[in-house]
Each structure stands twice: as C-alpha cells, then as structure tokens.
Design a protein around this nucleic acid. Structure first.
Lengths: 129, 129
DNA sequence: GCGACTTTGACAACCGTTTTCATTTTGTCG
DNA sequence: CGACAAAATGAAAACGGTTGTCAAAGTCGC
C-alpha cells in the first residue's frame, strides 16, 4: 500500500525547498488529507531510505526533506531566507573529498556538502525594503 | 567566573574527536569534577559562540563539539568508527562554493563541508577481526 | 560583613522523533 | 464474494537531547 507514501511524495514535490515532517503533515491536513503524523514520518523515512528524497539536518537538529529532480549524487544551494533550493553538481568537490580521505589513509569516504546563501530575489528584496 | 567553562574546554581539548555534551559531562564526572549537565551545555554553547570550539550535528541530531587547533576556517575528516578527526583545509572547496553561489546569483555564501570515512587503524582492525 | 549581581545545578518542561499497540485496510486464496 | 493473514495506519505514550526555571551558592565592590 503506497497511496499514503505517494501522497507525501507529491506534497513534497510541490514544495520548492526543504520541508520538515511537521511542515508536510500540516500542509497535508490543510489540504484535507486524512493522515497521521506517524505515517508522515514513516513515509518520509521510507522515501529517504529508497533515495527518492534527500534529507538533511537543520542547525536546530530538525530533519528536512526534499524531492529532488535527479537520482544522481548532487549537493544543494539553499537560500537561507526563502528556502529556495538549487541542485548543483560538484565533480571538483567529489574528487577533493576522495583525495583528502586518501591522503590520510581513510577508506569508504563519504561527505556532506551544503551551500547556503541569499538568493537573488531575496537580496534585492532586502535592498529594496 | 570562567573556571567551569575552562574545565569544559580542557576536557574537550583532551579528546581526539568530536564529543557530545553528555560525553563531556560523563567524563568530567568520571574525573571527579563537580559539575551539572546544565552547566556543561551552557559552557559548550558559550565556547561555540565564541568560536573556541567547533560544533556539528551527527546524523542522529546530536550536537558534538571539538576544540580545534586552528581558529582559521577549516573542515573535518572524521572517522565514523572511532571518531578520530583530522582538520583539513580545502581552498578548492572554498572557491567552488563561492563560484556555485555566484553562478546562481546567491550572495553571502557560506557552506558546510564534512568528510567521513574509516581511518587506517579502524579499517585494518575490521580486516583483522 | 552586606547587598547587588552572576553562576550554578537539580528538576521540570520542551519538542522532534520513535515506539507501542489496537484498529483498519489490503492482498490473496478458496 | 467471504475470510483470514500480513501490512499499514494513527492516537497516544515513551524517548532522548536540549533548554528553561528558580532557588541556592558564589563573587565582587564597598
């Protein structure tokens, strides 16, 4: 039975940036969906496990999720003001991480890379207002 | 009065990798220090705010702290098995992050980069055992 | 010593997340 | 179409790291 999971996935796809489980839950309830918070958590975990959504932790320790366009390994450029997110590839970073790990004798090297900034429209909004 | 804070800082300096607040607390109590968990949390926050220690979040959402050798911007190569941590510089990554932000019109670009792996001694231990 | 201010820490509250478990839904075999 | 086993659901409780509360203890200037 994947209807709930699909509903969660759809809700996530409709969002521009990263959303917390509680965000998704609130939005679904807003839209009249009959779903429990537990199920949203479970669906998000399943989607994350299956690689259909990306997860990352906010500074406050909350898990946030995003339905990304590509399955391939990529990173995120996130607007810290509006949450607008761009998926970016970084072959240079991949190589760098591998190299750094190798230099120090580390194996099974993975990495987390996220870039934050203020997007064009947000910075012009700030300048204007 | 900074004695407690210094004690926390010292304990952290004695550790090789990143340690959680509760780790630090347990270790200090082990060593006979009379200190409360609340105070350890406050000290770590103060140290982090002052830039004297680095903070990052584990996958489980726990905050972990480390007294780093350098004040300068750097990243970490962390053994996911024993926590052994190497401070690494990555000028290429800094430039890449700036460039990626610029390309998409983002300003005030910051980034988080952490590299995880299994260190040499841990991977040989695994192979042996 | 005395009052004003700061720091401390036991404990309770918080909050996101996970677990529990009874109920509902789904899939499947007759 | 039943009927039953397995999976999914969700309300409520539990959990765990972290933060807030507040009274007691410490520190400083006098």
């Amino acid at each position: 039975m994947t209807t709930r999971r699909d509903a969660v996935h759809d809700t996530l796809r409709r969002s521009e940036g990263f959303r917390s489980a509680q965000d998704v839950y609130a939005e679904m309830r807003q839209d009249g969906a009959k779903i429990g918070l537990t199920t949203v958590y479970r669906a998000l975990q399943a989607l994350a496990d299956g690689g259909q959504v990306d997860v990352l932790r906010t500074d406050e320790g909350e898990s946030v999720y995003r339905a990304c366009a590509t399955d391939a390994h990529h990173h995120h450029l996130v607007c810290r003001r509006c949450g607008h997110t761009v998926e970016v590839a970084g072959p240079a970073v991949e190589r760098w991480a591998e190299a750094v790990g190798g230099e120090h004798g580390f194996t099974e090297v993975t990495h987390t890379v996220e870039v934050f900034g203020t997007c064009a429209s947000c910075s012009s909004a700030v300048r204007a207002g």
